[in-house]
Amino acid sequence: MRREPARTFSDLLPLLFPAAVLVVFFVIPFGIMVAVSFFRRQQGGFYTVDFVVANYERFLTPFFGSVLGFSLFLAMAVAVCCVVVALPFTSFLSGCSRRVQVVWLVGILAILSLSEVIIGFAWSTLFSRTAGIGNLLAALGLMEAPKALLPGFGAVLTGMIYQALPFTILLLYPSLMRLDPSLLEAARTLGASPLRGFVSVVVPALRHTIAATLIMVFVFALGSYLLPQILGRPQHWTLSVLITDQAIYQSNMPFAAAMAVFLVLISLALVGLVLLVGGRREAA
C-alpha cells in the first residue's frame, strides 16, 4: 500500500484528534504566554490584561544582563565539557560489542530520565560534609578536615555536566556508529598514533555533528532550572531559575513570560542554526 495524498475529508479524520490536541494544548498556551508577557502585573493575583512593554524593558537592567551573561557562559561551559568528554567515550562505545552497547545505553537512558531533583540531591549528598568526597579527601590526607564542596560554581558545573553528559552521548552515538571504521584503520596503517588518528581523522569527519551537538547541549543546559538552585548560590542562578522564581515565588507572571519568550527566541535561533548545519551536511 503506497502513500497516497489525502483527497477526501475522511482521509484527514485521523489527523483531526492529534492536531486539535496539539493546537489547543500547545499552540494556544504558547500564544497566551506571549500575550501575558505584555500584560500588567497584578499584586496577589496573576495579571491584568493590558499592553505594556515594561516587562521587556527590564531586560536592560544590569541585573538581568548579568543573569543572562552567566546563563550563556554556564551553558557554553557545560556544552564544551560534555562534548570533550563524550566524544572519545562514544567513539569507544561504538567499537564495543552490541551486547556491551545495550548495557551502556540502558544505563545512560536511565540516568538521562532521572529527575533534576534527584540529580541535584545526589550531588548535594556527594559534595556534603558528612557523606561526600570531602571525607575521602580527608582520609587520603589531601584535606585537613572534611568540608562541604557546595554551594559553589564547581558544584553547579559538575551537576549540570552530569545531567547533560548522557544526552551528549546519545546525540553523538548515531553518527559515530555510522562512521566508517576503515578511516581510522587507514590512518593507523599509515603510522598515525591512535590519538593522532582520532584528532586528525574522526574529529574532522564529524565536524558538523560536533557543531550540532555543541548547540543542542547548549540549549539543553540552558533549560536546567533546579541544579543552579540546589548546588549554587544566588549569583549562580540562570535564566531558567529566574523564570521559575518570578512566576512562582514573586508571582510576577508577565515578567516571567517576557523572559520565557526571550529564552524561546534564543533556543529557536540556535535550533535553526543546527538545522542549517544539518542541511549543509546533506547538500555536501
Binding site: 498556551p29 504566554m33 513570560a257 520565557a260 524561546v264 533556543s267
Partner: peptide, 14 residues
C-alpha cells in the same frame, strides 16, 4: 526541544 521551563510556563498561563 525547548527548555522545559517554557512549556511549563505556557501551561501555567493557559
Amino acid at each position: 526541544m525547548l527548555p522545559p521551563v517554557i512549556t511549563a510556563l505556557g501551561f501555567l498561563s493557559f
